[in-house]
């Protein structure tokens, strides 16, 4: 038989290590696809939605205060007669952006800290991990509230505050992975070839903790979005003029007794959908790369 390049390529594919296999396992997991679809929907709703449904979220209609949902106002209006659908759409934008940005920052800081601590080991490791232990005893919401009240942050500052208060668990996770990877033969071999510490950390160890890191990042995006919403709900967090889900829910509470249910459900459902999507994705990822968190 003539050598068939396509067949050979297929064999090569099948023997390809982790990433592609993990990828396929991710899609085979029932939650993976649902989670990705949900997330795409939420992102489209928040970013493409306002482009298609072209109504200002800030325009007040003083003749249409507190309207229940109707054809003219699909999700009703709030206490200033603003179109609630437009507000809920726009409300997701900053939450999602800050959520992704802070999760990214958190992982960079946490991974760097964990890599260094785990790789160097010994006294450095002990001191660095002791610091993490101490920071973990303070409820992060308390820290966030403190920093938030002191800085009255913009979206960028808020991102940094979230990064500052949420990198500890990631650093622990990475460190414990590194501790076990460090013992493997290939690290020993790399060192025997004269590889520098940086090379071992970034080229040998980092790629092997990436699976864990990806799962943890997904968790962290969800956690960051919840944190932003919680802070805004508590009257801190993102600065007021642009609506966001947490703040929308916070103001909806004042009209709860008047039976304004349409103010309470939409932002909450949007948040819930976002959380469910991320949790589905991370669940599928967890089984795909086979890590335990």
């Amino acid at each position: 038989m003539i050598a068939n390049p396509i067949a050979e390529a297929k064999i090569e594919m099948a023997e390809r290590p982790e990433p592609s296999r993990a990828w396929r396992r991710f899609w085979r997991h029932p939650m993976g696809g649902i989670g990705v679809a949900g997330l795409i929907f939420v992102i489209l709703f928040s970013f493409l939605g306002p482009v298609i449904y072209h109504v200002s979220p800030d325009a007040t209609n003083l003749l249409d205060l507190m309207h229940a949902p109707s054809l003219q106002f699909p999700l009703g209006t709030d206490q200033l007669g603003r179109n609630y659908l437009a507000r809920v759409m726009v409300g997701g934008q900053l939450s999602l952006i800050v959520g992704f940005a802070s999760a990214f920052g958190t992982m960079i800081l946490g991974v760097a800290y964990g890599l260094i601590s785990g790789y160097l080991g010994g006294i450095v490791d002990m001191v660095l991990m002791r610091i993490v232990d101490i920071l973990l005893t303070i409820p992060s919401l308390f820290l966030l509230l403190l920093l938030d009240a002191m800085f009255q942050p913009s979206a960028v500052v808020l991102t940094f505050i979230i990064v500052f208060t949420s990198w500890f668990p990631a650093s622990r996770l990475v460190r414990s992975e590194v501790l076990s990877l460090k013992q493997r033969d290939y690290i020993e071999a790399s060192r025997a070839f004269g590889a520098s510490g940086w090379h071992i950390m970034l080229r040998e160890l980092l790629p092997n903790v990436m699976g864990t890191v990806m799962v943890a990042t997904t968790f962290q995006v969800a956690a960051s979005i919840i944190t932003i919403a919680t802070l805004s709900f508590l009257g801190l967090g993102l600065p007021p003029p642009t609506p966001n889900w947490g703040a929308l829910l916070s103001s909806s509470m004042s009209y709860m007794y008047q039976g304004a249910w349409w103010l309470i459900y939409p932002p909450g459902i949007a948040l819930l959908m976002t959380m469910l999507s991320f949790n589905f994705i991370s669940e599928a990822m967890k089984s795909a790369v086979d890590v335990r968190l």
């Binding site: 969800a222 919840i226 919403a229 919680t230 709860m256 309470i264 948040l271 819930l272 469910l276 949790n279």
Partner: peptide
């Protein structure tokens, strides 16, 4: 999964 994903403050509002 539903309760796990539920934002705590929204859950509290719904309970009230």
């Amino acid at each position: 999964f539903f309760f796990w994903s539920m934002p705590l403050f929204w859950l509290a509002i719904l309970v009230v």
